[in-house]
Design a protein around this nucleic acid. Structure first.
Lengths: 140, 140
DNA sequence: TTTGAAAATTGGCCTAA
DNA sequence: TTAGGCCAATTTTCAAA
């Protein structure tokens, strides 16, 4: 990881499909140099992958909620793992602060979110409290 | 947006660089069909872009915090926009729930996080309270 | 770093529903 | 009108030396 690797990363975080040749031009270096650096960062796990970023509202998911979960301390990890299994749950973090588990959940509307939260996730063994925060706008 | 588009999206959300030819094979269709569908979804804003996903700890960012901000109602949007300007602030959402503004912040260590939160972001006009939750593990 | 072959992307034009 | 098939030119990727 040097200066050049860092610049490559910045470029790829903005545009994960930018061709090696273009990146090489931007950094005044060769395509093969860029490619080998990227390959190495992929192998080392610095680059975990490439993802298309999708606008949920355009595919019918009009409600996205950052949702905290509280559990008994002993159930914490099993709950977190269980949450990962649900397709609607796009992200799961364990964290300090108000809630030990934080998630990002996609739903088609408020009704569906309510069903997901209270009929599905709320019934997971060990869940004590659910704290949803509906995202109004993604500014960055 | 039909069934086929949805499947293409699912593939690209997992691997944003998968070649059209491979996607076509997976869906038993032609490369040109896949390509034209993707182009259309890009133009319509369904696909907002492609990003390399980076492991922050591998490039020296050992502390990532989901951080809520409370403001006066009248300062809320200006604060949110101001937060977007900081390089350390990777994500900014406005939301309901405990905090009107939620962010994801990357720092090299606890000391740096503390500096960012209290010396930089905390001094933005209108910020009343900062609620950081350090991410322990990203499970999904 | 350079080179050349293979693969992927792109654009245009065509047909069919 | 729109989705998809087809072909040809260009660009990108990749693995040698």
């Amino acid at each position: 990881m040097d200066e050049k690797d860092m610049k490559i990363l910045e470029i790829l975080m903005k545009d994960g499909r930018k061709p090696y040749t273009e990146i090489a031009k931007m950094l005044n270096t060769s395509e093969s140099s860029v490619r080998k650096r990227i390959r190495k960062m992929e192998e080392e796990g610095i680059i975990k992958g490439y993802r298309a970023e999708v606008e949920p509202s355009k595919i019918g998911y009009n409600v996205v909620a950052l949702t905290g979960f509280d559990t008994n301390p002993e159930d914490f990890l099993t709950v977190a793992k269980k949450l990962c299994e649900f397709e609607e749950v796009k992200k799961v973090w364990t964290s300090t602060g108000d809630h030990m588990i934080m998630t990002e959940i996609w739903a088609r509307d408020g009704k569906e979110l309510s069903e997901i939260l209270f009929n599905k996730l709320g019934k997971i063994d060990g869940v004590k409290k659910i704290c949803p925060a509906i995202i109004l706008e993604e500014l960055k």
